[in-house]
Simulated scan of single mutants.
Amino acid sequence: MDDRQRYDRATAHLDPPFAVLDLAALRANAADMARRARGKPIRVASKSIRSRAVLERVLAMDGFSGIMAFTLPEALWLVSTGLRDVLVAYPTADRAALAALAADRRAAQEITVMVDRSEHLDVIESAVSEVRDRHEIRLCLDVDAGYLAFGGRFRAGALRSPIREADQAADLATEIAKRPGFRLTGLMAYESQIAGVGDAPAGNRLLTPAIRWMQARSRRELIMRRGRIVQAVRQVTDLEFVNAGGTGSIESTVREKAVTEVAAGSGLFHPRLFDFYRGFTGHPAALFALPVVRRPANGVVTVLGGGYIASGSPGPDRLPQPYLPAGLRYAPDEGAGEVQTPLLGQAAEDLRIGDRVWFRHAKAGELCERFAGLHLVDGDEIVEEVPTYRGEGRAFL
């Protein structure tokens, strides 16, 4: 029985649209990620999952420990439900959430917030100034891991922290140590130009060698610079963790002695954008089904909905992939529509009104913003339905 038959059989009693998570694929992806991490713990990126029940499942697997959240309100909620060791990967200016963090002993023990300049410290101090019995706030220092070349005229990597060199990091660590109510516990440096950029892009022979050239040089530069930064900060304060990397860079990141853990999440679901890496091959685990509602012409079907466009720089690679049956493609003048999506191809000839077309999202967790639940498929049956963040009434961004 092929995957399409399995999914159709398991969900025959459901009316699409709906989303599924293939547990066998999830387990295989998790095991491979843990193998690639070579014994270093993987902190699960919650933005790539966005289902508390799935986070709990992954954290029960070997090799995974801790959560990397994307907002402080999310982290507060996760800790309130019993989850532990949550690093908020992005700085926050949410005054109410900061005050709630400082007032809650358990939350303050379990949550670490991100900073990359003294202004963040000022914002936090202002937000918690009226909190009685304020608890110490754990901080993580974010460092720019982007790659610069040609005298700074070329840059690869996300524009994140202004801190790039060891002396800058040590200076901010020193300032944190002088301010009461703060404790610097971690350091993070995320190399998005390696972890989030596939080195085997489809259909672009000219781009491939350029990406590999950049990534090879970035790895060499970063292993030295990140090591110097960690050493300089450790001279100021003890660090509980040094976090780096992502799904696409696990092997290279864990080789660095300075790194104690790697962050990853997308590889668990293996969305479309992660098909284009040489170093690993994942299994598509998260899918959504849309119903065929029209047959406008020969070789054309229309499905309901479908315009689930991924974040990032706009382009065809941000569209969901019509996955099963194979051989469907978008109409070039319509693409993925808000309420309906025409699909072209020979496979459309065999589809009838009410049949399903299975899609893969370009990214991982963004799929869960569209659906209240995930139907967990094991083999050819649904074993459970679990809520997404949306299904629990939570929308953090």
Rank of each mutant, 00 (worst) to 15 (best):
L139K: 02
D171R: 05
L141H: 00
C140F: 02
P332M: 09
Y7S: 10
A127L: 04
R219L: 08
K178T: 07
T174W: 03
I163Y: 00
V197A: 01
F182P: 09
R295P: 02
L148W: 10
Y323W: 14
H135E: 14
I111K: 03
G248F: 03
G327H: 02
V339A: 12
A28Q: 15
R6V: 03
L101Q: 13
E369T: 09
R105G: 02
L397I: 11
G373C: 11
G282Q: 08
Q109V: 06
A170T: 00
R4F: 11
L207R: 09
K40W: 06
P325C: 11
R226M: 11
L59P: 05
G345E: 10
P316A: 08
R6Y: 04
L268G: 08
A24F: 01
R95G: 08
A145C: 14
V301M: 04
T11G: 14
T237E: 05
R50C: 13
D378N: 15
L159A: 15
K47T: 07
D3G: 08
P322S: 00
A347I: 12
T281Y: 05
L78P: 02
R84L: 09
I67S: 03
T81Q: 09
E392W: 04
L101T: 06
S192L: 00
A30I: 07
G391Q: 14
T247M: 05
E369L: 15
A264P: 12
P16D: 10
